[in-house]
Amino acid sequence: MNWHTLLFYLFALMSCGFAIAVVASSNVVRMAFFLIVSLASTAGLFFLAGAHFVGAMQIMIYVGGTLVLLIFGVMLTAHAAFVSMVTKSSDWVLAAVFGGALLGLLALTAFSVEDWRVARGDQAAVTSSEGEFASSIGQALMGMRVDRLSEGNSQLEAGMSGYLLPFEIIAIHLLVVLIGAAYLARTKRRVGSVTEGVQ
């Protein structure tokens, strides 16, 4: 067993285990914590798969940004009564049945293709030279597929123009979402609401 395999199992175990813990826990803050660990371990998996930039991005935005927001939201709304909401046991049974079925299906699919199951032999040669560099990702986002240059011909040129349009769309989308979220979170306070809570 080489260290890649070892680390893969470590991270896979952590991300799956804590994902299950998220489902099993009924305390929102603990759920958020488990989610953090689960997503951070997933970032580890990304690093193992050679996607360094995506891994760092996962930590930075997903774990760092989204979850801080989430915990912030939890704390803002964390009245003791809402921190833990217990699920009915009948819901659990239903969820377990359907979830189990779905998992079985997906697992079967995952191992059904020979090419997917068998790992590439010459891994060591690959990791150090390809796919780890952010510049190719950046250039793809700017509309240039440098990794596809070798296959460049007139038919593929359209495909080589990269992701400039989606990138721009997402940029605008993010801006809109930011403004929208800020607007949505505002409430005009009703007169009298200051005193109504505690007394």
Binding site: H4, F8, A12, C16, I20, G99, L103, L106, T109, W116
Partner: peptide, 26 residues
């Protein structure tokens, strides 16, 4: 003990996906 392949990753993804679905439902 084999070197991991895509399938292994897919399995992890499947587990997380199912966890997410169950979480959303319950």
């Amino acid at each position: 003990t084999d070197p991991v392949g895509v399938s292994h990753f897919l399995l992890v993804g499947a587990v997380m996906f199912v966890c997410g679905v169950v979480c959303m439902a319950t």
